[in-house]
């Protein structure tokens, strides 16, 4: 349980980080909650780590206008309180409690989770469903990519060698948006087998805007367009919720083999969790 030898660079500026990453053999050390574990198992053997923990400003979590900006050192724990205003804050608070446990939440980061792209991670599905923008910094400058285009498969993203995931930008959810989250796991401390999040806006008693995201229901995070379509323009009643669940399980989910959950069960469970997330959004707001 010791890593292979590696070099260590303590970066002080974003330029330091980007410069260190250009060799193609360097990994970013943020919270280290997954990377260091894998290094200890020696399933990853980076030649060099660039530690971003001392870069001023990387821990910024700021709201400007209707946009929430999340820097690369914002820990999961930052979302447990009321730092994020409105319904988006409520959703993130409900989700974050399901991420690992307090010691990991105190150290691990949202952007680290995005870059790692574990199929059972909650944040990637949240950002995908909400249409967040991700900003990547490289030697040739910055580029922005939609979260929906960022995730390409398990532990596979559009981030190129030499790029730092420098910022995530989420649009705040308008007041009155109702949010819900439902997760299925085997023990309190285990990974999600499946999870579903929902954000619903009602206008005149009918669904005028909706986002539904699926965790671990495919090889990448899923925005459940079919489930959303089943809701748009309808009242958020049991029939609509059930229909959305069925659409999510049958059409949006593309489940993969995983232990203790056959494909039939996964589709069924996605339907149930979608229903429960939407019911929470309706009943608890």
């Amino acid at each position: 349980m010791k890593p292979a030898p590696f070099e260590y660079v303590a970066a002080r500026t974003e330029d330091d980080v980007v410069a260190a990453l250009t060799d193609g053999h360097t990994e970013v050390l943020a919270g280290g909650q997954s990377l260091v574990l894998e290094m200890n198992y020696r399933s990853r053997r980076p030649a060099r780590l660039v530690d971003i923990n001392r870069v001023p400003g990387f821990d910024r979590l700021a709201t400007g206008g209707d946009v929430l900006r999340v820097g690369p050192l914002v820990r999961h724990r930052a979302f447990e309180g009321d730092a994020v205003p409105g319904p988006l804050g409520v959703l993130l608070r409900r989700v974050v409690r399901h991420i690992a446990h307090p010691p990991i939440r105190a150290r691990g980061t949202m952007l680290g989770s995005l870059a790692y792209a574990h199929p059972a991670a909650e944040w990637p599905a949240v950002l995908t469903a909400l249409g967040a923008d991700l900003e990547l910094a490289g030697r040739d400058g910055r580029r922005t990519i939609s979260a929906g285009d960022f995730f390409l498969g398990p532990h596979t993203t559009a981030r190129r060698p030499g790029e730092l995931l420098a910022e995530a930008r989420l649009t705040l959810l308008p007041a009155g948006t109702r949010v819900g989250f439902a997760e299925h796991r085997r023990t309190h401390a285990s990974f999600a087998q499946l999870a579903v999040l929902a954000a619903v806006t009602l206008t005149g008693g009918h669904v005028s805007a909706v986002r539904v995201g699926l965790v671990n229901a495919a090889d990448r995070p899923v925005r459940a367009h079919h489930a959303e379509a089943a809701l748009l323009g309808r009242p958020l009643d049991d029939a609509a919720i059930t229909a959305a669940g069925q659409a999510a399980g049958a059409q949006d989910a593309d489940p993969r083999d995983q232990p203790y959950a056959g494909l039939d069960y996964q589709r069924h469970a996605v339907a149930v969790l979608t229903r429960r997330a939407l019911a929470q959004a309706r009943d608890e707001g």
Partner: peptide
Amino acid sequence: PQTRSLLDYLIPTISE
């Protein structure tokens, strides 16, 4: 072997 850590091999904790 498919159970190589306590993330794969689940044991009850205080929460269970």
